[in-house]
Design a protein around this nucleic acid. Structure first.
Length: 494
RNA sequence: GCGGGUGUAGUUCAAUGGCAGAACACCAGCUUCCCAAGCUGGUCACGGGAGUUCGAUUCUCCUCACCCGCUCCA
């Protein structure tokens, strides 16, 4: 697909979302605010269904997982222990020559020994040495940070602490004319209580996961869960991203669905594979087409230092393949950090061996808003044969399940349709519409993703049946008007 | 945050230094027996703020938002 077409599809989705009341820009009457979005009447229903399906699949539908709902504001020490205060920022550098902007550790770092002729370059974590020095670096071609080479011992002449950073240069144009690195902490700060001094600073959580880790002991002590077990949570998180965009794909306020699954440390790899598969299947249960989904395992140098493995679920968005969810084997890093920082035990007592162990954790971290964008993109269909736009949402996700329509506005049809509507709406989201021609009303519902239409016509007056229209196939069948709710309920559970 | 682009009705687009138009959508009525039909009537817009000017939607500046790229991630 050409780039212009991709952009066009995003624009069409954006327009449809606004036109039909799925998603609006936040604070629109004041000119809007960057990357904040409001879910309208149809959008909030869609979002609720996505979250409910996640909760059902991962919490209530399982014996080994419980849910919780932690507060957004937490003790500042949580974020010190988790590493977010120290690490959750991007030092960025601008190239004065070619105007490229990049992360400090992506710059070309030139190192040199101050005693001998040994020198090398670090390029994006990869050490590049001249052939004559190749022998001095054998298995160590990947490094964590260029910083780690400073003041290290020279591998050639052996002088202690003789390696120094000669210069850093732009990875794009190679020029060494760079601006100083600037720090951007990605956590939102606010003040706890009325006084705005430094002591009262707290953060809005940048992820929901920490609310689970700090409650590990509370949950273990109150639920009698046995390893392996999980704790899940859905909630808002906030990140002061440098760059936002692609509609609701990346915003500064967003909602996460996170599951922390605690396992015996030597079993984490097995459970990581298990959850990757589970989560990959889940998106397909939302009706997302298999060919638009893929898994991507992180390469070794991409991994955070504490993670043993991480696999992303990616979706083929109109703007390209992008991450929907990450499933990571975080080992015991999170619990260890909080045990160390808080001085509390937070272990699990294994009765078989009579020992306390700190479990490893496999984390599934999914974005609610990204899931919404995924199901909307995936469902968007221009039916050129019938000249209509259809959201082919899975009926489970559809904001409105059925539209109840009198074929024409006379002969008592509106009254019969209204009576059916009154009955059906007690059991599912239904919509009554008697305005305009029947075709126009069907098309309105097609754009809203409503899977079924029930129409009262003259035959209804004779034999008490109504037509049931299928959104995708346009097929119509006749069903008894007094049994509409039951038949629809069966169809929705198919 | 930096560079580029775009802002006119609910949507998609016109025009204009001097009363801002269309199509579709929406609302009311008529009509209509199955897929955006027709007729009549109606509601609704120059992103915001300064400046130039007798007069600015139009020109200038600032600002805000969206899109693309850098970057990052749920």
């Amino acid at each position: 697909m050409a780039k212009a077409e991709k952009n066009e599809l995003m624009e069409k989705l954006f327009s449809l979302c606004k036109r039909r009341g799925f998603i609006f820009q936040s604070s629109e009457i004041y000119g809007g605010i960057t990357s904040c979005w409001d879910y309208g009447p149809l959008g909030v229903e869609l979002k609720r269904h996505v979250k409910d399906l996640w909760w059902q699949e991962n919490i209530t539908g399982r014996e080994d997982v419980v849910g919780m709902d932690a507060s957004i504001l937490m003790h500042p020490k949580v974020w010190e222990a988790s590493g977010h205060v120290e690490n959750f920022h991007d030092p960025l550098i601008d190239c004065k020559k070619c105007r490229a902007r990049f992360r400090e550790d992506k710059a070309l770092h030139y190192f040199k020994c101050e005693k001998c002729d040994f020198h090398f370059r670090v390029n994006g974590g990869l050490i590049e040495v001249k052939d004559e020095f190749r022998t001095f670096f054998k298995d160590d071609l990947y490094a964590n940070e260029p910083e780690s080479y400073k003041k290290s011992d020279c591998p050639k002449c052996g002088t202690a602490g003789s390696i120094f950073l000669e210069k850093i240069a732009c990875p794009t144009c190679g020029a060494a004319e760079l601006s100083p690195a600037r720090q951007f902490n990605l956590m939102f700060k606010t003040h706890f209580g009325p006084s705005e001094d430094t002591a009262s600073e707290v953060y809005l959580r940048p992820e929901t996961a920490q609310g689970i880790f700090v409650n590990f002991d509370n949950v273990v002590n109150t639920t009698r869960l046995k390893l392996p077990f999980g704790i899940g949570q859905i909630g808002k998180a906030f990140r002061n991203e440098i760059t936002t965009g692609n509609f609701i794909f990346r915003s500064r306020e967003f909602e996460q669905m996170e599951l922390e699954y605690f396992v015996k440390p030597d079993e984490s790899q097995k459970w990581h594979e298990y959850w990757v598969e589970q989560r990959f299947q889940w998106y397909q249960k939302l009706g997302v087409k298999r060919e638009n989904l893929r898994l991507r395992a992180h390469a070794k140098e991409e991994l955070a230092h504490y993670a043993r493995a991480c696999t992303d679920v990616e979706y083929k968005f109109p703007f390209g393949w992008s991450e929907l969810e990450g499933i990571a084997d975080r080992q015991t890093f999170d619990l260890d950090s909080h045990i160390k920082a808080s001085g509390k035990k937070m272990s699990y007592f294994e009765t078989e061996t009579n020992t306390h162990i700190v479990p490893a954790v496999v984390e599934s971290s999914a974005g609610v808003d990204r899931s919404i964008l995924t199901v909307l993109s995936d469902a968007y269909w221009e039916d050129t044969e019938h000249d209509r736009i259809v959201l082919k949402l899975d009926p489970k996700l559809a904001p409105i399940k059925v539209a109840i329509l009198p074929l024409v506005n006379k002969d008592g049809m509106p009254e019969i349709a209204m009576a059916i509507f009154s009955d059906v709406k007690k059991q599912m989201a239904a919509f009554y519409d008697q305005t305009g021609s029947i075709g126009r009303r069907y098309r309105r519902q097609d754009e809203a993703g409503t899977p079924f239409g029930v129409t009262v016509d003259s035959q209804t007056l004779e034999d008490g049946t109504v037509t049931l229209r299928d959104r995708d196939s346009l097929e119509q069948i006749r069903i008894p008007k007094d049994n509409v709710a039951n038949i629809l309920r069966e169809k929705l559970h198919e």
